[in-house]
Design a binder for these strands. Structure first.
Length: 526
RNA sequence: GACCCGGUAGCUCAGUCGGUAGAGCAGCGGCCUUUUAAGCCGUAGGUCGUGGGUUCGAUCCCCACCCGGGUCACCA
Protein backbone atom coordinates (compact mmCIF):
# COMPACT_ATOMS: atom_id res chain seq x y z
CA UNK A 1 0.00 0.00 0.00
CA UNK A 2 1.37 3.36 -0.96
CA UNK A 3 1.65 6.31 1.35
CA UNK A 4 1.31 8.53 -1.70
CA UNK A 5 -2.03 7.00 -2.66
CA UNK A 6 -4.51 7.69 0.11
CA UNK A 7 -7.28 6.05 -1.88
CA UNK A 8 -5.44 2.76 -1.46
CA UNK A 9 -6.12 2.81 2.28
CA UNK A 10 -8.98 0.76 3.67
CA UNK A 11 -12.17 2.62 4.58
CA UNK A 12 -11.53 4.98 7.42
CA UNK A 13 -7.85 4.15 7.64
CA UNK A 14 -6.85 7.76 7.51
CA UNK A 15 -9.81 8.81 9.64
CA UNK A 16 -10.10 7.28 13.08
CA UNK A 17 -13.80 8.17 13.18
CA UNK A 18 -14.36 5.87 10.23
CA UNK A 19 -17.96 6.86 9.53
CA UNK A 20 -19.61 6.13 6.20
CA UNK A 21 -18.93 9.63 4.95
CA UNK A 22 -15.64 10.02 6.75
CA UNK A 23 -12.36 9.16 5.12
CA UNK A 24 -13.78 9.39 1.62
CA UNK A 25 -12.71 12.94 0.89
CA UNK A 26 -9.61 11.86 -0.99
CA UNK A 27 -11.27 9.17 -3.05
CA UNK A 28 -11.76 9.82 -6.72
CA UNK A 29 -15.25 10.30 -8.05
CA UNK A 30 -15.59 6.72 -9.29
CA UNK A 31 -14.74 5.33 -5.89
CA UNK A 32 -17.09 7.75 -4.21
CA UNK A 33 -19.84 6.46 -6.49
CA UNK A 34 -19.02 2.89 -5.46
CA UNK A 35 -19.27 3.83 -1.80
CA UNK A 36 -22.61 5.48 -2.53
CA UNK A 37 -23.83 2.28 -4.19
CA UNK A 38 -22.69 0.31 -1.17
CA UNK A 39 -24.54 2.68 1.16
CA UNK A 40 -27.69 2.47 -0.96
CA UNK A 41 -27.63 -1.33 -0.83
CA UNK A 42 -26.96 -1.40 2.89
CA UNK A 43 -29.89 0.94 3.49
CA UNK A 44 -32.12 -1.48 1.57
CA UNK A 45 -30.97 -4.26 3.88
CA UNK A 46 -28.72 -5.94 1.32
CA UNK A 47 -25.70 -7.89 2.47
CA UNK A 48 -22.87 -6.47 0.37
CA UNK A 49 -20.21 -8.99 1.40
CA UNK A 50 -21.69 -12.45 1.46
CA UNK A 51 -20.41 -15.45 3.37
CA UNK A 52 -20.76 -18.34 0.95
CA UNK A 53 -22.55 -19.46 -2.17
CA UNK A 54 -23.29 -22.92 -3.51
CA UNK A 55 -22.31 -22.90 -7.17
CA UNK A 56 -23.89 -25.76 -9.09
CA UNK A 57 -22.22 -25.13 -12.44
CA UNK A 58 -19.47 -23.11 -14.05
CA UNK A 59 -20.10 -20.97 -17.10
CA UNK A 60 -18.56 -23.63 -19.30
CA UNK A 61 -20.70 -26.38 -17.77
CA UNK A 62 -23.85 -24.35 -18.41
CA UNK A 63 -23.17 -24.38 -22.14
CA UNK A 64 -22.76 -28.15 -22.10
CA UNK A 65 -25.88 -28.53 -19.96
CA UNK A 66 -28.25 -26.83 -22.36
CA UNK A 67 -26.72 -28.52 -25.39
CA UNK A 68 -28.66 -27.65 -28.52
CA UNK A 69 -31.83 -26.90 -26.58
CA UNK A 70 -33.68 -23.63 -26.23
CA UNK A 71 -34.39 -24.10 -22.51
CA UNK A 72 -32.33 -25.68 -19.78
CA UNK A 73 -32.47 -26.56 -16.09
CA UNK A 74 -31.94 -24.22 -13.15
CA UNK A 75 -28.35 -23.40 -12.34
CA UNK A 76 -26.51 -21.42 -9.69
CA UNK A 77 -23.44 -19.59 -11.00
CA UNK A 78 -21.06 -17.19 -9.31
CA UNK A 79 -18.31 -14.82 -10.37
CA UNK A 80 -17.50 -11.24 -11.25
CA UNK A 81 -19.73 -8.94 -13.27
CA UNK A 82 -17.60 -8.28 -16.36
CA UNK A 83 -20.13 -6.43 -18.51
CA UNK A 84 -23.45 -4.70 -17.89
CA UNK A 85 -26.06 -3.43 -20.34
CA UNK A 86 -29.12 -1.90 -18.78
CA UNK A 87 -32.32 -1.46 -20.84
CA UNK A 88 -34.78 0.11 -18.48
CA UNK A 89 -36.80 -2.77 -17.10
CA UNK A 90 -34.25 -5.41 -18.15
CA UNK A 91 -30.51 -5.84 -17.83
CA UNK A 92 -28.08 -8.00 -19.76
CA UNK A 93 -24.79 -8.70 -18.06
CA UNK A 94 -21.93 -11.15 -18.28
CA UNK A 95 -20.56 -13.07 -15.36
CA UNK A 96 -16.94 -14.22 -15.46
CA UNK A 97 -15.74 -17.33 -13.63
CA UNK A 98 -12.65 -19.52 -13.98
CA UNK A 99 -14.18 -21.45 -16.90
CA UNK A 100 -15.21 -18.44 -18.96
CA UNK A 101 -18.19 -16.12 -19.07
CA UNK A 102 -21.93 -16.55 -19.24
CA UNK A 103 -24.67 -14.05 -19.97
CA UNK A 104 -27.22 -13.09 -17.33
CA UNK A 105 -30.68 -11.70 -18.06
CA UNK A 106 -32.44 -9.73 -15.33
CA UNK A 107 -36.11 -8.76 -15.72
CA UNK A 108 -37.99 -6.45 -13.42
CA UNK A 109 -41.14 -8.58 -13.60
CA UNK A 110 -39.12 -11.69 -12.63
CA UNK A 111 -37.06 -10.19 -9.83
CA UNK A 112 -39.68 -7.88 -8.36
CA UNK A 113 -39.33 -4.17 -7.64
CA UNK A 114 -37.09 -4.47 -4.59
CA UNK A 115 -34.51 -6.82 -6.08
CA UNK A 116 -34.55 -5.09 -9.46
CA UNK A 117 -34.09 -1.79 -7.70
CA UNK A 118 -31.16 -3.18 -5.76
CA UNK A 119 -29.26 -4.41 -8.81
CA UNK A 120 -29.26 -0.87 -10.17
CA UNK A 121 -26.50 -0.37 -7.60
CA UNK A 122 -24.40 -3.24 -8.94
CA UNK A 123 -21.16 -2.33 -10.69
CA UNK A 124 -18.60 -3.93 -12.96
CA UNK A 125 -16.31 -6.04 -10.83
CA UNK A 126 -18.87 -6.94 -8.16
CA UNK A 127 -18.80 -10.60 -7.19
CA UNK A 128 -22.30 -12.04 -7.31
CA UNK A 129 -24.11 -15.35 -7.27
CA UNK A 130 -27.32 -15.90 -9.25
CA UNK A 131 -29.85 -18.68 -9.67
CA UNK A 132 -32.33 -19.33 -12.44
CA UNK A 133 -33.04 -21.43 -15.52
CA UNK A 134 -30.87 -21.52 -18.62
CA UNK A 135 -32.27 -20.39 -21.96
CA UNK A 136 -31.05 -19.16 -25.30
CA UNK A 137 -31.63 -15.61 -26.42
CA UNK A 138 -32.87 -14.98 -29.91
CA UNK A 139 -29.24 -14.61 -31.00
CA UNK A 140 -28.57 -18.07 -29.58
CA UNK A 141 -26.44 -17.12 -26.58
CA UNK A 142 -26.69 -19.34 -23.51
CA UNK A 143 -28.09 -17.17 -20.73
CA UNK A 144 -29.32 -17.47 -17.15
CA UNK A 145 -32.80 -15.98 -16.63
CA UNK A 146 -32.00 -14.68 -13.17
CA UNK A 147 -34.61 -15.35 -10.48
CA UNK A 148 -32.53 -14.60 -7.39
CA UNK A 149 -29.25 -12.78 -6.96
CA UNK A 150 -26.86 -12.32 -4.05
CA UNK A 151 -24.07 -9.82 -3.73
CA UNK A 152 -21.00 -11.66 -2.47
CA UNK A 153 -18.41 -8.86 -2.63
CA UNK A 154 -18.93 -5.23 -3.59
CA UNK A 155 -16.06 -3.87 -5.70
CA UNK A 156 -15.25 -0.51 -4.13
CA UNK A 157 -12.42 0.11 -6.61
CA UNK A 158 -13.08 -0.01 -10.35
CA UNK A 159 -11.34 -2.85 -12.17
CA UNK A 160 -9.80 -1.70 -15.46
CA UNK A 161 -12.06 -3.74 -17.70
CA UNK A 162 -11.80 -3.13 -21.39
CA UNK A 163 -14.76 -3.82 -23.64
CA UNK A 164 -14.67 -6.99 -25.64
CA UNK A 165 -16.21 -7.84 -28.95
CA UNK A 166 -15.86 -10.92 -31.11
CA UNK A 167 -14.72 -10.31 -34.67
CA UNK A 168 -14.37 -13.33 -36.93
CA UNK A 169 -14.26 -15.62 -33.92
CA UNK A 170 -11.47 -13.69 -32.21
CA UNK A 171 -11.91 -11.58 -29.12
CA UNK A 172 -10.92 -7.97 -29.68
CA UNK A 173 -10.46 -5.87 -26.56
CA UNK A 174 -10.91 -2.12 -26.49
CA UNK A 175 -9.31 0.24 -23.98
CA UNK A 176 -7.74 -2.69 -22.21
CA UNK A 177 -5.59 -2.53 -19.08
CA UNK A 178 -2.29 -2.10 -20.92
CA UNK A 179 0.23 -0.44 -18.59
CA UNK A 180 2.71 -3.27 -18.14
CA UNK A 181 4.11 -1.85 -14.92
CA UNK A 182 0.67 -1.55 -13.36
CA UNK A 183 -0.24 -5.03 -14.56
CA UNK A 184 2.79 -6.44 -12.76
CA UNK A 185 2.32 -4.40 -9.61
CA UNK A 186 -1.40 -5.12 -9.40
CA UNK A 187 -1.28 -8.66 -10.68
CA UNK A 188 -4.62 -9.27 -8.96
CA UNK A 189 -6.23 -6.72 -11.27
CA UNK A 190 -4.34 -8.02 -14.30
CA UNK A 191 -5.58 -11.53 -13.56
CA UNK A 192 -9.10 -10.35 -12.79
CA UNK A 193 -9.59 -8.69 -16.17
CA UNK A 194 -7.42 -10.89 -18.43
CA UNK A 195 -8.48 -14.50 -18.79
CA UNK A 196 -5.43 -15.18 -20.95
CA UNK A 197 -3.11 -14.12 -18.12
CA UNK A 198 -4.86 -16.54 -15.81
CA UNK A 199 -4.47 -19.24 -18.45
CA UNK A 200 -0.76 -18.52 -18.71
CA UNK A 201 -0.12 -18.97 -15.01
CA UNK A 202 -2.29 -22.08 -14.98
CA UNK A 203 0.04 -23.37 -17.70
CA UNK A 204 3.09 -22.52 -15.61
CA UNK A 205 1.63 -24.46 -12.72
CA UNK A 206 0.89 -27.38 -15.04
CA UNK A 207 4.51 -27.35 -16.24
CA UNK A 208 5.90 -27.49 -12.71
CA UNK A 209 3.43 -30.19 -11.74
CA UNK A 210 4.54 -32.24 -14.76
CA UNK A 211 8.19 -31.82 -13.83
CA UNK A 212 7.50 -33.02 -10.30
CA UNK A 213 5.59 -36.01 -11.64
CA UNK A 214 8.41 -36.78 -14.05
CA UNK A 215 11.07 -36.75 -11.33
CA UNK A 216 8.87 -38.53 -8.78
CA UNK A 217 8.26 -41.21 -11.38
CA UNK A 218 11.97 -41.78 -11.78
CA UNK A 219 12.55 -42.25 -8.09
CA UNK A 220 13.81 -38.78 -7.20
CA UNK A 221 13.03 -37.55 -3.70
CA UNK A 222 11.85 -33.97 -3.34
CA UNK A 223 13.76 -32.26 -0.53
CA UNK A 224 14.14 -28.81 0.97
CA UNK A 225 17.53 -27.29 1.76
CA UNK A 226 18.42 -23.99 3.44
CA UNK A 227 17.58 -20.71 1.82
CA UNK A 228 19.51 -18.88 4.54
CA UNK A 229 23.10 -20.01 4.34
CA UNK A 230 26.22 -19.06 6.33
CA UNK A 231 28.25 -19.47 3.12
CA UNK A 232 26.88 -19.20 -0.39
CA UNK A 233 28.07 -21.29 -3.28
CA UNK A 234 27.19 -23.55 -6.18
CA UNK A 235 27.23 -20.70 -8.67
CA UNK A 236 29.08 -17.51 -9.42
CA UNK A 237 26.94 -14.54 -8.41
CA UNK A 238 26.67 -11.70 -5.94
CA UNK A 239 24.45 -12.66 -3.01
CA UNK A 240 21.89 -10.90 -0.86
CA UNK A 241 23.18 -10.50 2.68
CA UNK A 242 21.05 -10.48 5.80
CA UNK A 243 21.65 -10.77 9.51
CA UNK A 244 20.38 -13.08 12.21
CA UNK A 245 19.82 -11.14 15.39
CA UNK A 246 19.84 -13.88 18.02
CA UNK A 247 22.90 -15.60 16.57
CA UNK A 248 24.41 -12.21 15.69
CA UNK A 249 25.77 -13.50 12.41
CA UNK A 250 25.50 -12.67 8.74
CA UNK A 251 23.52 -15.00 6.53
CA UNK A 252 23.30 -15.15 2.76
CA UNK A 253 20.26 -15.93 0.68
CA UNK A 254 21.21 -18.87 -1.46
CA UNK A 255 22.41 -18.38 -5.02
CA UNK A 256 22.11 -22.12 -5.77
CA UNK A 257 20.92 -25.34 -4.11
CA UNK A 258 23.81 -27.40 -5.42
CA UNK A 259 26.16 -27.89 -2.47
CA UNK A 260 23.41 -28.93 -0.04
CA UNK A 261 21.82 -31.35 -2.47
CA UNK A 262 25.15 -33.09 -3.03
CA UNK A 263 25.61 -33.37 0.74
CA UNK A 264 22.39 -35.40 0.64
CA UNK A 265 23.82 -37.72 -2.02
CA UNK A 266 26.78 -38.29 0.31
CA UNK A 267 24.22 -39.28 2.94
CA UNK A 268 22.67 -41.93 0.72
CA UNK A 269 19.68 -40.06 -0.70
CA UNK A 270 20.75 -41.13 -4.15
CA UNK A 271 18.22 -39.24 -6.23
CA UNK A 272 17.10 -35.87 -4.96
CA UNK A 273 15.58 -32.73 -6.40
CA UNK A 274 14.52 -29.34 -5.16
CA UNK A 275 12.32 -26.70 -6.72
CA UNK A 276 12.74 -23.39 -4.96
CA UNK A 277 13.88 -19.83 -5.16
CA UNK A 278 17.46 -18.70 -5.63
CA UNK A 279 18.45 -15.08 -5.10
CA UNK A 280 21.07 -13.13 -7.00
CA UNK A 281 21.88 -9.54 -6.20
CA UNK A 282 22.34 -8.38 -9.76
CA UNK A 283 20.64 -6.34 -12.42
CA UNK A 284 16.99 -6.63 -13.39
CA UNK A 285 16.09 -6.91 -17.05
CA UNK A 286 14.00 -8.88 -19.50
CA UNK A 287 15.54 -12.19 -18.44
CA UNK A 288 16.65 -11.55 -14.84
CA UNK A 289 14.55 -11.28 -11.69
CA UNK A 290 16.38 -11.04 -8.34
CA UNK A 291 14.58 -14.14 -7.11
CA UNK A 292 13.81 -16.91 -9.52
CA UNK A 293 12.64 -20.49 -9.49
CA UNK A 294 15.36 -23.08 -9.82
CA UNK A 295 15.12 -26.82 -10.32
CA UNK A 296 18.15 -28.87 -9.45
CA UNK A 297 18.29 -32.66 -9.47
CA UNK A 298 21.07 -35.12 -8.72
CA UNK A 299 21.40 -38.80 -9.51
CA UNK A 300 24.05 -41.04 -7.96
CA UNK A 301 26.01 -43.37 -10.25
CA UNK A 302 25.09 -41.31 -13.31
CA UNK A 303 27.37 -39.14 -15.44
CA UNK A 304 26.64 -36.18 -17.66
CA UNK A 305 25.81 -38.35 -20.67
CA UNK A 306 23.11 -40.08 -18.64
CA UNK A 307 21.77 -36.71 -17.56
CA UNK A 308 21.45 -35.48 -21.15
CA UNK A 309 18.91 -38.22 -21.71
CA UNK A 310 17.03 -37.24 -18.55
CA UNK A 311 16.98 -33.59 -19.61
CA UNK A 312 15.58 -34.43 -23.05
CA UNK A 313 12.76 -36.42 -21.49
CA UNK A 314 12.09 -33.81 -18.82
CA UNK A 315 11.87 -30.98 -21.37
CA UNK A 316 9.52 -33.08 -23.47
CA UNK A 317 7.28 -33.65 -20.44
CA UNK A 318 7.32 -29.96 -19.57
CA UNK A 319 6.50 -29.00 -23.17
CA UNK A 320 3.61 -31.44 -23.29
CA UNK A 321 2.18 -29.97 -20.09
CA UNK A 322 2.40 -26.41 -21.37
CA UNK A 323 0.88 -27.38 -24.69
CA UNK A 324 -1.89 -29.25 -22.93
CA UNK A 325 -2.69 -26.26 -20.73
CA UNK A 326 -2.56 -23.61 -23.44
CA UNK A 327 -4.46 -25.76 -25.92
CA UNK A 328 -3.56 -27.16 -29.30
CA UNK A 329 -5.75 -24.98 -31.43
CA UNK A 330 -4.34 -21.51 -31.03
CA UNK A 331 -0.68 -21.63 -29.98
CA UNK A 332 0.93 -18.45 -28.82
CA UNK A 333 3.40 -16.96 -31.27
CA UNK A 334 6.84 -18.35 -30.66
CA UNK A 335 5.81 -20.90 -28.05
CA UNK A 336 8.42 -23.65 -28.30
CA UNK A 337 6.10 -26.10 -26.54
CA UNK A 338 4.54 -26.68 -29.97
CA UNK A 339 7.90 -27.56 -31.52
CA UNK A 340 8.05 -31.24 -32.51
CA UNK A 341 11.81 -31.28 -31.93
CA UNK A 342 11.18 -31.16 -28.19
CA UNK A 343 9.11 -34.32 -28.31
CA UNK A 344 11.54 -36.23 -30.49
CA UNK A 345 14.57 -35.64 -28.25
CA UNK A 346 18.00 -36.48 -29.64
CA UNK A 347 19.10 -32.85 -29.40
CA UNK A 348 22.32 -32.20 -31.36
CA UNK A 349 25.52 -32.10 -29.32
CA UNK A 350 28.38 -29.79 -30.13
CA UNK A 351 31.73 -29.63 -28.37
CA UNK A 352 32.70 -26.39 -26.67
CA UNK A 353 36.33 -26.08 -27.82
CA UNK A 354 35.91 -27.11 -31.47
CA UNK A 355 32.80 -24.93 -31.77
CA UNK A 356 34.60 -21.84 -30.53
CA UNK A 357 37.80 -22.66 -32.42
CA UNK A 358 35.84 -22.96 -35.64
CA UNK A 359 34.02 -19.70 -34.96
CA UNK A 360 37.34 -17.95 -34.43
CA UNK A 361 39.09 -19.72 -37.32
CA UNK A 362 41.91 -21.13 -35.18
CA UNK A 363 43.10 -24.74 -34.66
CA UNK A 364 42.52 -24.78 -30.89
CA UNK A 365 41.28 -21.78 -28.94
CA UNK A 366 42.85 -23.11 -25.76
CA UNK A 367 46.32 -22.75 -27.35
CA UNK A 368 45.80 -19.02 -27.87
CA UNK A 369 47.79 -16.68 -25.65
CA UNK A 370 45.99 -14.38 -23.25
CA UNK A 371 46.88 -11.50 -25.55
CA UNK A 372 45.37 -13.24 -28.55
CA UNK A 373 42.20 -14.02 -26.58
CA UNK A 374 41.99 -10.42 -25.49
CA UNK A 375 42.32 -9.25 -29.07
CA UNK A 376 39.62 -11.64 -30.24
CA UNK A 377 37.31 -10.55 -27.42
CA UNK A 378 37.86 -6.92 -28.27
CA UNK A 379 37.00 -7.65 -31.88
CA UNK A 380 33.80 -9.38 -30.76
CA UNK A 381 32.74 -6.29 -28.90
CA UNK A 382 33.33 -7.60 -25.39
CA UNK A 383 33.70 -4.72 -22.95
CA UNK A 384 36.69 -4.04 -20.71
CA UNK A 385 38.77 -6.85 -22.20
CA UNK A 386 41.90 -5.50 -20.53
CA UNK A 387 40.73 -6.48 -17.03
CA UNK A 388 39.05 -9.82 -17.73
CA UNK A 389 40.61 -13.06 -16.52
CA UNK A 390 41.39 -15.80 -19.01
CA UNK A 391 38.38 -17.93 -17.99
CA UNK A 392 36.14 -14.91 -18.32
CA UNK A 393 37.51 -14.10 -21.77
CA UNK A 394 36.82 -17.64 -22.92
CA UNK A 395 33.31 -17.47 -21.58
CA UNK A 396 32.62 -14.11 -23.22
CA UNK A 397 33.95 -15.29 -26.55
CA UNK A 398 31.81 -18.39 -26.43
CA UNK A 399 28.71 -16.39 -25.60
CA UNK A 400 29.34 -13.95 -28.41
CA UNK A 401 30.29 -16.45 -31.10
CA UNK A 402 28.43 -19.66 -30.34
CA UNK A 403 25.62 -19.36 -27.78
CA UNK A 404 23.91 -16.44 -29.43
CA UNK A 405 23.65 -18.33 -32.72
CA UNK A 406 22.02 -21.49 -31.33
CA UNK A 407 18.35 -21.60 -32.30
CA UNK A 408 17.29 -25.23 -32.07
CA UNK A 409 17.66 -27.06 -28.74
CA UNK A 410 21.32 -28.06 -28.63
CA UNK A 411 23.66 -29.51 -26.02
CA UNK A 412 27.04 -27.82 -25.75
CA UNK A 413 29.44 -30.31 -24.12
CA UNK A 414 32.91 -30.46 -22.56
CA UNK A 415 33.63 -27.02 -21.13
CA UNK A 416 37.13 -25.84 -20.21
CA UNK A 417 38.02 -26.69 -16.61
CA UNK A 418 38.79 -23.04 -15.85
CA UNK A 419 35.13 -22.01 -16.06
CA UNK A 420 33.69 -25.12 -14.37
CA UNK A 421 34.87 -25.29 -10.74
CA UNK A 422 32.38 -27.96 -9.62
CA UNK A 423 32.63 -30.36 -12.57
CA UNK A 424 34.73 -33.52 -12.96
CA UNK A 425 37.66 -33.48 -15.39
CA UNK A 426 36.82 -35.06 -18.71
CA UNK A 427 37.99 -38.62 -19.17
CA UNK A 428 41.03 -38.49 -21.48
CA UNK A 429 41.38 -34.69 -21.47
CA UNK A 430 41.91 -33.02 -18.09
CA UNK A 431 41.84 -29.53 -19.65
CA UNK A 432 38.08 -30.04 -20.11
CA UNK A 433 35.23 -31.03 -17.83
CA UNK A 434 32.30 -33.36 -18.28
CA UNK A 435 29.76 -30.60 -18.44
CA UNK A 436 26.91 -29.68 -20.74
CA UNK A 437 24.56 -26.78 -21.15
CA UNK A 438 21.34 -26.88 -23.14
CA UNK A 439 20.75 -23.87 -25.35
CA UNK A 440 17.81 -22.84 -27.50
CA UNK A 441 17.08 -19.52 -29.17
CA UNK A 442 20.34 -18.13 -27.86
CA UNK A 443 19.39 -18.80 -24.24
CA UNK A 444 20.70 -21.20 -21.66
CA UNK A 445 18.02 -23.61 -20.48
CA UNK A 446 20.04 -26.14 -18.45
CA UNK A 447 23.49 -26.53 -16.94
CA UNK A 448 24.80 -29.92 -15.82
CA UNK A 449 27.86 -31.96 -15.14
CA UNK A 450 29.44 -35.08 -13.86
CA UNK A 451 29.82 -33.73 -10.33
CA UNK A 452 33.33 -33.38 -8.97
CA UNK A 453 33.56 -35.93 -6.12
CA UNK A 454 37.31 -35.81 -5.46
CA UNK A 455 37.63 -33.69 -2.28
CA UNK A 456 41.32 -32.94 -2.88
CA UNK A 457 40.65 -31.60 -6.38
CA UNK A 458 37.59 -29.73 -5.08
CA UNK A 459 39.66 -28.06 -2.36
CA UNK A 460 42.15 -26.84 -4.96
CA UNK A 461 39.32 -25.43 -7.09
CA UNK A 462 37.85 -23.64 -4.06
CA UNK A 463 41.24 -22.21 -3.18
CA UNK A 464 41.64 -20.89 -6.72
CA UNK A 465 38.26 -19.20 -6.31
CA UNK A 466 39.33 -17.78 -2.97
CA UNK A 467 42.38 -16.25 -4.64
CA UNK A 468 40.10 -14.62 -7.23
CA UNK A 469 37.93 -13.30 -4.44
CA UNK A 470 40.96 -11.89 -2.61
CA UNK A 471 41.89 -10.21 -5.88
CA UNK A 472 38.53 -8.46 -5.93
CA UNK A 473 36.20 -10.78 -7.86
CA UNK A 474 32.89 -10.25 -6.06
CA UNK A 475 31.35 -13.33 -7.61
CA UNK A 476 34.00 -15.82 -6.54
CA UNK A 477 33.05 -18.14 -3.72
CA UNK A 478 34.66 -18.96 -0.41
CA UNK A 479 36.10 -22.32 0.63
CA UNK A 480 33.21 -24.35 2.03
CA UNK A 481 34.89 -26.54 4.62
CA UNK A 482 31.69 -28.33 5.59
CA UNK A 483 31.04 -29.28 1.97
CA UNK A 484 34.60 -30.58 1.65
CA UNK A 485 34.11 -32.61 4.84
CA UNK A 486 31.03 -34.17 3.25
CA UNK A 487 32.97 -35.05 0.09
CA UNK A 488 35.73 -36.58 2.23
CA UNK A 489 33.21 -39.10 3.53
CA UNK A 490 32.80 -40.16 -0.11
CA UNK A 491 30.20 -39.09 -2.66
CA UNK A 492 29.30 -41.61 -5.33
CA UNK A 493 29.81 -40.45 -8.90
CA UNK A 494 26.81 -38.23 -9.52
CA UNK A 495 25.15 -36.45 -12.40
CA UNK A 496 23.57 -33.11 -11.54
CA UNK A 497 21.37 -30.68 -13.48
CA UNK A 498 20.10 -27.16 -12.89
CA UNK A 499 17.19 -25.67 -14.87
CA UNK A 500 15.81 -22.18 -14.38
CA UNK A 501 12.08 -22.80 -14.49
CA UNK A 502 11.03 -19.21 -15.20
CA UNK A 503 13.18 -19.24 -18.32
CA UNK A 504 12.10 -22.72 -19.33
CA UNK A 505 8.51 -21.54 -19.10
CA UNK A 506 9.28 -18.39 -21.08
CA UNK A 507 10.80 -20.54 -23.79
CA UNK A 508 7.97 -23.05 -23.89
CA UNK A 509 5.14 -20.52 -23.69
CA UNK A 510 6.67 -17.87 -25.95
CA UNK A 511 7.04 -15.16 -23.27
CA UNK A 512 9.51 -12.38 -23.97
CA UNK A 513 9.78 -10.80 -20.51
CA UNK A 514 10.51 -12.69 -17.29
CA UNK A 515 8.15 -10.30 -15.53
CA UNK A 516 5.30 -11.89 -17.46
CA UNK A 517 6.32 -15.37 -16.27
CA UNK A 518 6.35 -14.45 -12.55
CA UNK A 519 3.17 -13.58 -10.65
CA UNK A 520 4.77 -10.92 -8.48
CA UNK A 521 8.09 -9.82 -9.99
CA UNK A 522 10.48 -7.76 -7.88
CA UNK A 523 9.78 -4.04 -8.38
CA UNK A 524 10.60 -0.75 -6.81
CA UNK A 525 8.08 0.37 -4.22
CA UNK A 526 5.42 2.67 -5.61
C1' G B 1 25.69 2.79 -15.55
C1' A B 2 25.25 5.15 -21.00
C1' C B 3 21.95 6.56 -24.81
C1' C B 4 16.91 6.93 -26.87
C1' C B 5 11.53 7.18 -25.95
C1' G B 6 7.68 8.05 -22.59
C1' G B 7 4.72 9.85 -17.76
C1' U B 8 -2.08 14.31 -19.59
C1' A B 9 -9.37 12.05 -16.42
C1' G B 10 -10.68 5.52 -13.23
C1' C B 11 -8.88 2.96 -18.36
C1' U B 12 -6.99 3.78 -23.55
C1' C B 13 -5.17 7.95 -25.88
C1' A B 14 -5.16 12.99 -28.54
C1' G B 15 -3.49 18.05 -27.94
C1' U B 16 -1.34 22.86 -26.83
C1' C B 17 4.50 26.69 -32.71
C1' G B 18 3.73 29.36 -24.37
C1' G B 19 -2.49 32.14 -22.90
C1' U B 20 -4.12 26.71 -16.73
C1' A B 21 -6.77 20.97 -21.77
C1' G B 22 -10.04 17.19 -25.24
C1' A B 23 -12.21 12.25 -27.18
C1' G B 24 -13.93 7.16 -26.50
C1' C B 25 -14.99 3.89 -22.70
C1' A B 26 -15.94 3.75 -17.35
C1' G B 27 -18.94 7.25 -13.70
C1' C B 28 -23.48 10.15 -12.37
C1' G B 29 -28.89 11.67 -13.86
C1' G B 30 -32.91 10.57 -17.49
C1' C B 31 -35.40 7.24 -21.48
C1' C B 32 -35.54 2.23 -23.12
C1' U B 33 -38.58 -5.59 -21.08
C1' U B 34 -33.84 -10.25 -26.06
C1' U B 35 -29.01 -6.80 -25.59
C1' U B 36 -23.96 -8.00 -26.44
C1' A B 37 -17.88 -2.45 -27.96
C1' A B 38 -26.18 -1.84 -26.82
C1' G B 39 -28.41 3.04 -28.13
C1' C B 40 -30.21 8.18 -27.33
C1' C B 41 -30.27 12.90 -24.20
C1' G B 42 -27.85 15.40 -20.30
C1' U B 43 -23.82 15.86 -16.70
C1' A B 44 -19.52 15.55 -13.92
C1' G B 45 -14.49 14.39 -13.67
C1' G B 46 -7.55 16.59 -14.38
C1' U B 47 -1.76 20.19 -9.29
C1' C B 48 -0.88 17.66 -17.62
C1' G B 49 5.36 12.70 -12.95
C1' U B 50 8.18 16.05 -8.96
C1' G B 51 11.11 20.41 -7.87
C1' G B 52 13.49 24.63 -9.67
C1' G B 53 14.41 28.33 -13.78
C1' U B 54 13.04 31.66 -17.98
C1' U B 55 8.46 34.52 -18.83
C1' C B 56 3.33 39.20 -17.69
C1' G B 57 1.89 34.03 -18.06
C1' A B 58 4.53 27.12 -18.31
C1' U B 59 1.10 21.07 -19.29
C1' C B 60 4.21 23.07 -23.51
C1' C B 61 10.78 26.01 -23.40
C1' C B 62 15.45 25.09 -20.09
C1' C B 63 17.84 22.40 -15.82
C1' A B 64 17.76 18.72 -12.10
C1' C B 65 15.41 14.66 -10.09
C1' C B 66 11.75 10.42 -9.73
C1' C B 67 9.32 6.42 -12.30
C1' G B 68 8.65 3.22 -16.57
C1' G B 69 9.89 1.08 -21.52
C1' G B 70 13.68 0.04 -25.26
C1' U B 71 18.93 -0.59 -26.83
C1' C B 72 23.76 -1.40 -25.02
C1' A B 73 26.83 -2.60 -20.81
C1' C B 74 26.92 -5.52 -16.23
C1' C B 75 25.00 -10.35 -14.71
C1' A B 76 27.63 -17.49 -17.32
Amino acid sequence: MSARDPSAAPPGAEDPDGGAAAGTGDLNFVMRARRASLDALTERGFQAFGYSFVRTHTAHECAALIGEGEEGPDVAVAGRIVSWRGHGKTVFAHLGDPSGRIQLYFRKDTLGDALFGAIQHFDLGDVIGVRGPLFRTRTGEVTVRVETVELLAKALRPLPFGKEEVVDGKTVRHSAFADSEMRSRQRYADLAVHAEVRALFVARSAMIRAIRAFLDGRGYLEVETPVLQPLYGGALARPFVTHHNALDMPLFLRIADELYLKRLVVGGLERVYEIGHDFRNEGVDRTHNPEFTMLEFYQAYADYVDMMGVVEALVAAAAAAVRGALGESDPRDGAAAYDDALQEGGFPRIEWVPALSAALGVPDVLDLSDAALRAAAGKAGVASVATLSRPKLLDELFQAHVEAAIERPTFVVDYPIEISPLAKPKRGNPALTERFELFARGRELANAFSELNDPIDQRQRFEAQARLKAAGDEEAVMVDEDYLRALEYGMPPTGGVGIGLDRLFMYLAGIQHIRDAILFPTMRPE
